[in-house]
């Protein structure tokens, strides 16, 4: 190989080395840039991670606060509802109790209405006495009783109707004598307190109710014993007794007056026909 060729080869080699160095430098620059970029990105990631952490904390705190508020609100609402429920429950109990009271009152009024209606449904004295007896059996629950009316001629109480005991067994009673006579005299009702007490039923009755028109006693209702299922008197029984004291007296008095007026009318008509000469219609 000539020295010229040798130079050429060297020059080529040198050029190749130069090229390689340049490529290497570019590679080095690129690597530096990459490293820089990497550094920047890592920094950015760290910053972002920090931001995320901070944000999350903030979000967590506000959510917890919101939830706490909601729970407190719900708790308040729950307490309100519980209180309201208790209020309604107590009101409900009150209504139920009042309903029972109203039902009882209704029941009592029905009894009083029916008794009063029946008493004034007739002007026949026997019908009236029958109705009084029915009321005492069916609405009060008496087993043995009598209805004694005042005979003003002899000032004695005479049995006009009875149940469970024959009228003939009931002696006439003088006003002011014994329990019944004293009730007729005073005009005050009598109630035996001890129902279990052994007693002579006809002389020591359970109940005596004077039948009065205003202050005038026309008779006495005397109860000797009650039906076996009737263990005592209820409020409506006392109301029925009180109603009977007035209404039965009025009904008996009216029917007696009506019977008297019918008799008088018939007598007067007879006289008129006799005087006018007209025959009595058959």
């Amino acid at each position: 190989m000539s020295s010229e060729e040798k130079d050429i080869k060297e020059a080529e080699l040198f050029k190749k080395v130069e090229d390689f160095l340049q490529v290497f430098k570019k590679g080095e620059e690129f690597t530096h840039e990459l490293l820089k970029e990497n550094e920047r990105l890592r920094f950015k990631i760290i910053k972002l991670e920090e931001d995320i952490r901070n944000n999350k904390k903030q979000v967590d705190n506000s959510q917890v606060k919101l939830l706490k508020d909601t729970i407190a609100h719900l708790e308040e609402e729950k307490n309100y509802i519980v209180n309201k429920f208790k209020e309604v429950e107590s009101e409900n109990k009150d209504f139920a109790a009042r309903y029972v009271e109203v039902e009882e009152e209704n029941n009592n009024l029905a009894n009083l209405y029916v008794a009063s209606y029946q008493l004034h449904s007739t002007l026949d004295i026997y019908e009236v006495l029958k109705i009084v007896v029915e009321i005492i059996i069916n609405l009060i629950g008496a087993e043995k009783f009598s209805l004694m009316l005042l005979d003003e001629d002899v000032n004695e109480l005479v049995a006009a109707a009875s149940e469970g005991v024959d009228k003939s067994e009931i002696p006439n009673i003088k006003i002011g004598i014994g329990v019944v006579g004293n009730v007729a005299k005073s005009g005050e009702s009598y109630f035996e307190k001890d129902f279990e007490k052994k007693r002579d039923e006809l002389k020591e009755p359970l109940v005596c109710i004077p039948l009065k028109i205003k202050e005038h006693v026309i008779g006495v209702l005397v109860v000797y014993s009650l039906l076996m299922q009737k263990k005592g008197f209820t409020r409506v029984d006392y109301e029925l007794f009180s109603m009977l004291a007035g209404h039965a007296a009025t009904a008996i008095f009216s029917s007696r007056l009506y019977a008297q007026s019918e008799r008088k009318l018939s007598t007067i008509q007879g006289f008129i026909e006799l005087l006018s000469g007209k025959p009595k219609p058959k």
Partner: peptide, 12 residues
Amino acid sequence: DSPTMRQLITFA
């Protein structure tokens, strides 16, 4: 047989 009872029951 008692009109009083019939009326009371009917009423109810």
